[in-house]
Write a protein that binds this DNA or RNA. Structure first.
Length: 490
RNA sequence: GCGCCUCUAGCUCAAUUGGCAGAGCAUCGGACUCUUAAUCCGCAGGUUCUGGGUUCAAGUCCCAGGGGGCGUACCA
């Protein structure tokens, strides 16, 4: 790296004092620009401000230096004449990227740009090495992800995406809090991984001498809390799945799960519509969001359609659970699905749906009524045998959320777990193991409840028009730069 | 895991058919009191990802490895 080649003595000599221990900005770039827009060209405002940020550009002009300072709100020009700027030489020697604090009078240059005259200044931190191209910025994606702190300064749209994501999360909390949902925290270390169909990361607790798993979903703990009388709960937190990476998958990602007693999946779909369209209006000003090279209209109500209806629309194939299993398997094979012996009719229908239909669904649609075979935690459909009251919202061909009226019968739940366990024995590493403790909780009574899981990262992608998850995760999972060395346990 | 693409100065990118490795910005030195990606003059900056091979000659072609991207598989 360049830091090796930059001996300390080459750094600007002054200001000679070490950086201050604290600094008190009383203004920011955006506010100053807004408040002094009406100032006449070439005049001073009489207002003195103190600001801090990084020096992003510098234009030397002999006995006058212009700088551009960027803070969290934007950029503002610094005006530094040799006559009045303390340690003028040193100011001109600052590295691009250095953090500086500046106090001075707000003024407007003769050319009409609101600026802060540098009446006093100090360097708060140094940027060692050279700064990325001031015009082209930083394009190398590896560097952008590994050294996100550079990306955030140099690529304004990147910074803006993360600000939007953060606002989105706090807005979700407000939305749920207003509806009397209680935010809780449940374990991330699970003795039995459950609540989703995924491979877990495994770890070990030394004192307990027990293997534990990083959670793949908080679902089963949150429903235990509903059993405990917390009638509306939610958790926003990281979950971990030991699976491949892609533009839509990061091994650790953020999930919102909520559980709502006395409500069913029709209630929950309304909640999702309100939440997502409301966020769009709040964060983008419109219910229409750009995604890829197309737009998605998020205005409710969203279409509801059963999985079978959607398959038929897409393929003209009228499928049904009652069909002969081998016939379904033949259709699936024709469509290019890799059919396994263990697949029943329900699993085959899901596979056919995912192969042919899901990616084609652009406008928001709630896909409802999933086969029981692939929904081990969902309650049987009240009218349609073999199906469950489950929905997923699909937007832009991607799954945004998954929810269902919860299975509350402990006997049935145990039977579903046992079926999962059989699949596990048959080689499906993602099938759920039996969680007897969860069954025990159900034996104490889970009231009629609906549950929902929303991928926060994917929601952020949707609302920022981003097509890769790595652009909405601050530090996406990457291959380690140096071979990992096992830390010695103490 | 598989397939395709890619890797050149700190950053962004060139380099014709295999024929002397270049530019802009940044850095460094100099000029300049109203610039806006300031401008002008100058200096310096390279294991062309790594290792092998073909060739009179390799950034360019071939093989192996590494990093990255995309697609695919996996991810109900």
């Amino acid at each position: 790296m360049t830091s090796d080649e930059q001996p300390v003595e080459s750094a600007p000599a002054a200001p000679s004092e070490p950086p201050p221990y604290r600094f008190d900005p009383d203004a920011d770039a955006a506010t100053i620009l807004a408040e002094h827009d009406g100032l006449e060209d070439g005049t001073e405002s009489g207002v003195t401000v103190t600001i801090a940020g990084r020096l992003m550009l510098r234009r030397g002009q002999g006995k006058l230096v212009f700088g551009v300072l960027q803070d969290g709100t934007g950029r503002i020009q610094l005006f530094a004449p040799a006559k009045t700027t303390p340690e003028f030489e040193a100011f001109g020697d600052l590295n691009l990227g250095d953090w500086i604090g500046v106090s001075g009078e707000v003024m407007k240059t003769r050319r009409g740009e609101v600026s802060v005259r540098v009446d006093s200044w100090s360097r708060l931190a140094e940027w060692q090495g050279t700064f990325p191209d001031k015009w082209h910025g930083l394009a190398d994606v590896d560097t952008r992800y590994r050294q996100r702190y550079i990306d955030l300064w140099v690529n304004e749209d990147s910074r803006q995406r993360f600000v939007t994501r953060s606002k989105m999360v706090s807005s979700i909390r407000r939305f749920l809090d207003e509806r009397s949902f209680l935010e809780v925290e449940t374990p991330m270390l699970h003795p039995i991984p459950g609540g989703a169909h995924a491979r877990p990361f495994t770890t070990h607790h030394n004192a307990l001498d027990a293997d534990l798993y990083l959670r793949i979903a908080p679902e089963l703990y949150l429903k235990r809390l509903v059993v405990g009388g917390l009638e509306r709960v939610y958790e926003i937190g990281r979950v971990f799945r030991n699976e491949g990476l892609s533009t839509r998958h990061n091994p650790e990602f953020t999930m919102l799960e909520l559980y709502w007693a006395y409500a069913d999946y029709t209630d929950c779909m309304v909640l999702v519509e309100e939440l997502v369209s409301g966020l769009a209006v709040e964060l983008t000003g419109s219910t229409t969001v750009a995604f890829g090279d197309r737009e998605i209209d998020l205005a409710p109500p969203w279409r509801r359609a059963t999985m079978l209806e959607l398959i038929e629309e897409q393929t003209q194939l009228a499928l049904d659970l009652a069909m002969d299993r081998d016939e379904l398997a033949a259709i699936a094979t024709d469509l290019g699905v890799e059919v396994k012996q263990s697949y029943g009719s329900g699993k085959l229908i899901l596979e056919i749906y995912e192969k042919t239909t899901e990616a084609e669904l652009w406008d928001p649609v709630f896909v409802i009524d999933y086969p029981k075979e692939v929904s081990p935690l969902s309650r049987d459909h009240r009218d349609k045998p073999g199906f469950t009251e489950r929905f997923e919202a699909i937007l832009g061909g991607r799954e945004l959320c998954n929810g269902f009226t919860e299975l509350i019968d402990p006997v049935e739940q145990l039977a579903r777990f046992e079926a999962q366990s059989a699949e596990r024995e048959a080689g499906d590493a993602e099938a759920m193991p039996i969680d007897h403790d969860y069954v025990r909780a159900l034996e104490h009574g889970l009231p009629p409840t609906v549950g929902l899981g929303i991928g926060i990262d994917r929601l952020a992608m949707l609302l920022t028009g981003t097509t890769t998850i790595r652009d909405v995760v601050l530090f996406p999972t990457l291959r380690p730069e140096t071979p990992a060395t096992d830390p010695e346990p103490a």
